[in-house]
């Protein structure tokens, strides 16, 4: 059982997302993360889903996804060299004084940006893979994480390989 990142190319039509997510819940899969957006091809969208399961179950889910008429292509990025990123916005309690300086130091170690400064809080924006964001959130917890918002993972294959509609 390990996380698999599935890149799913779909027709950009109403209801496609619920077809996809409905299939996951019907077959008893928990979606770890989900990201949807338009892509390089007109009329299509790309859904990136991270799901945990053994290889056989993942294979079955991919085959079932392929049966959906509005799905054009399904790839398991996990089998290949890839780049994966997510973005998180973290609102941390930061009173004037030492804690604020410490938080800013942590931010610079993680190459996070401070995107909002309030009287009692800071908002940090961090980009990275899941582990990096988890690690940063853990470090910030001692100061008080008021709100933690993250996008789903997105991924892309390294090199010239692509997940596109052409075979």
């Amino acid at each position: 059982m390990k996380p698999h990142t599935l890149s799913i190319l779909v027709e950009n039509r109403a209801g496609v997302l619920s077809r996809v997510t409905g299939l996951f819940s019907r077959r008893g899969f928990n979606i770890e993360s989900l990201a949807v957006g338009p892509c390089e091809e007109p009329g299509m969208s790309r859904i990136t889903i991270v799901v945990i399961g053994d290889d056989e179950k993942i294979e079955q889910v991919m085959k079932q996804l392929n049966k959906l008429i509005d799905i054009i292509k399904v790839s398991d990025l996990t089998e290949n060299e890839r780049v994966e990123r997510e973005l998180a916005l973290i609102k941390v309690t930061a009173e004037q004084g030492t804690s604020r300086a410490e938080i800013m130091q942590i931010a610079s170690i993680f190459r996070a940006q401070i995107v909002d400064v309030g009287a009692k809080s800071l908002i940090l924006q961090v980009i990275g893979d899941t582990e990096k964001i988890d690690a940063m959130e853990k470090l910030l917890r001692q100061y008080g994480v008021k709100e933690f918002v993250r996008t789903g993972t997105i991924g892309i294959l390294r090199g010239s390989k692509t997940v596109t509609s052409s075979k």
Binding site: G15, S18, R19, L23, R26, I69, D70
Partner: peptide, 13 residues
């Protein structure tokens, strides 16, 4: 269409 999503090959509204 929502109700029949899991029991149709495809559906349209």
């Amino acid at each position: 269409t929502g109700i029949t999503m899991p029991i149709t090959k495809h559906n349209y509204l």
